[in-house]
Nucleic acid binder design. Structure first.
Lengths: 153, 153
DNA sequence: CAGGCTATTTAGAACAATTCTAAAAAGTTG
DNA sequence: CAACTTTTTAGAATTGTTCTAAATAGCCTG
């Protein structure tokens, strides 16, 4: 049985709007707002621990468990996305536009790359007949502009 | 400093050939051969533990650490590939043809999908200028033919 | 605005997958 | 076969994450 839906807090900012509009049933606690805000201000795909460290500047008493908790709620609410690079720690981003991730094998940096053209996975690969595609996780690996020149050969 | 290259064991099978040809400097121990063989016979992208369980039928005394060790050597030697689905345990496959992975969100099954057409990541996404692409990890998610009909709505 | 409810937060324990360690065993070379 | 290197082993350690139980806070009803 689902809990009774709650309204969001009275005072709303631009971020709050996005939270209110997109997050189906997500109580807008100060912690969740801060976690979201940190992520919205970051372009470097921070890990849960990175987020924890950044939020701590504003809320020194927040615990790592709360950050994980907030990240989970924001993710399931569709407000942020989890990014997986290999099977190392998860990273998060607030960029919800369709994009892929470019990952530098040398420095570990992760950046977003926007699609240059329309892209439909089912057109490019022979998927099992009858399969229903919900999404494609695409991570492109290589060397970033900074690391590429330094590479041997 | 690299260790002196060793020759592979005298008697060579088809698998050994692939191992010998492709694995730059990989001593062909019985364990490594068995791990590779198990993988070559599997199409279900087993986890390290799955491989461990399957190899144990032939070599009851093999340890999990050895399986991890063999998988790592086979991977760095380019003989097998690691497959990552989200950040759950790694899976492995011996299919070295260019392909992507289709992952069913309902049953967790992973299958290979071959490219229907030529595919160059740099054509589809605006990667950072100067970046050097070495590979694209593409995992397509959705529902497999078995699970799709059962899904609600 | 007190009482009752539910949700959130917390610190720390637990967990799972993997890697590390140190020692034993096996293989290779001179 | 002696000296050396590599592989294998069992178990400990590590890492990133999730779980737990208790404390706290938020909201609604009367």
């Amino acid at each position: 049985m689902l809990p009774t839906p709650r309204k969001s807090t009275p005072k709303a900012s631009a971020l709050d709007c996005r939270l209110a509009v997109m997050g189906a049933d997500l109580r807008l606690t100060p912690h969740r707002r801060e976690v979201f805000q940190v992520l919205a201000e970051s372009t470097d795909h921070p890990t849960a621990y990175d987020v924890f460290a950044r939020v701590k500047d504003r809320s020194p008493h927040i615990s790592l468990a709360t950050v994980y908790n907030c990240l989970e709620h924001l993710t399931t609410g569709g407000l942020i996305k989890q990014v997986h690079v290999e099977r190392s720690q998860s990273r998060y981003c607030a960029n919800l536009h369709e994009h892929v991730h470019f990952h530098c094998d040398a420095c570990g940096m992760v950046t977003d790359a926007l699609p240059a053209a329309n892209f439909a996975p089912a057109e490019f690969w022979q998927l099992p007949p009858g399969a229903k595609v919900t999404r494609a996780d695409i991570s492109i690996r290589g060397l970033c502009p900074t690391c590429a020149p330094k590479a041997p050969r």
